[in-house]
Computed example of a mutant assay.
Amino acid sequence: MRLLSISSGKVTSLFGSHHPNYDRVASAINKKSISNLHHLVPVEINRLGIAGDEQADLSVHGGLEKAIYVYPIEHYAFWNVLLTRETKKPVDLPLGAFGENFTIEGLVETEVFVGDQMQIGNLGFTVVKLREPCFKFNAKMGYKGAAKAMLQSGFSGWYLRVNQTGTLTADSDIKVIPGERVTSIADQNKVLFNRGNQTNLWD
């Protein structure tokens, strides 16, 4: 298991007809890889996440409990195929495409539990919860069904709390220290999907 990329972004405007009340909305979902396997640059990680990274709506992203958003590289192939089919354009998503801060390999939602500790390089983190998609994700992907596809697939990624600050570089090893292992990220996603009242997805 290893860290493939660290990504960061600033708040900008997203455009598109992906919500009935907005034709543009502020978001920092557009992240760019700043440290990766081809560009091994140390990045400062503080209690609020990556130094210089921004979030537009702190009620749903960011803060101490959602400081780092993690997404597995294993899901990229699924999204490339889906978006190519739905948008009728060739899609090859770049690292950070889901607004994630850490793109990782070797670990997915069924294997990660709330309360697990993750040691990445010399830094320590705690798994907090899944990522819940909204209409901004639809706008970012250019596909009005993207948020529902994330729920249906279970490919949500998850948030981390930062326990130990410092610098981190892509290609760092990841070690998981299990917690109580009661609720997995996949379990959380099933509960969210089965509610069936995700009115903010706007497909």
Results as ranks from 00 to 15, higher is better:
V162W: 07
R181E: 04
L168R: 02
P94I: 13
E100N: 04
F102D: 07
E109Q: 08
D187P: 01
N138L: 04
M150Q: 12
V162M: 09
T199I: 13
E180P: 00
I174S: 03
R161L: 11
G142A: 05
Q198R: 12
N163F: 02
T110D: 14
W202D: 11
F137D: 15
I104S: 06
A170S: 14
N101C: 05
K129H: 01
I177K: 03
S172P: 00
L130N: 09
S184A: 11
E111N: 10
L123G: 02
E86F: 01
I120W: 02
P133S: 12
G106R: 09
K175T: 14
C134N: 09
N194R: 09
G179Q: 05
F125K: 01
G157K: 11
A149F: 02
W202S: 08
G124D: 08
T126V: 11
A77R: 03
V127Q: 02
W79T: 04
G142D: 14
T110I: 02
N189M: 10
D173V: 09
S156H: 05
V112F: 03
G196K: 10
G124V: 02
L160M: 09
K175R: 12
Y143H: 10
M141N: 07
R195F: 08
A149Q: 08
D171C: 07
G142T: 06
N163P: 00
E105C: 10
F78N: 12
Q164Y: 04
L130W: 00
V91M: 10
L82R: 13
V114Q: 13
E132F: 06
E180M: 09
R85P: 00
E111C: 03
E111L: 02
V191Q: 14
E105F: 12
E111R: 00
V128I: 15
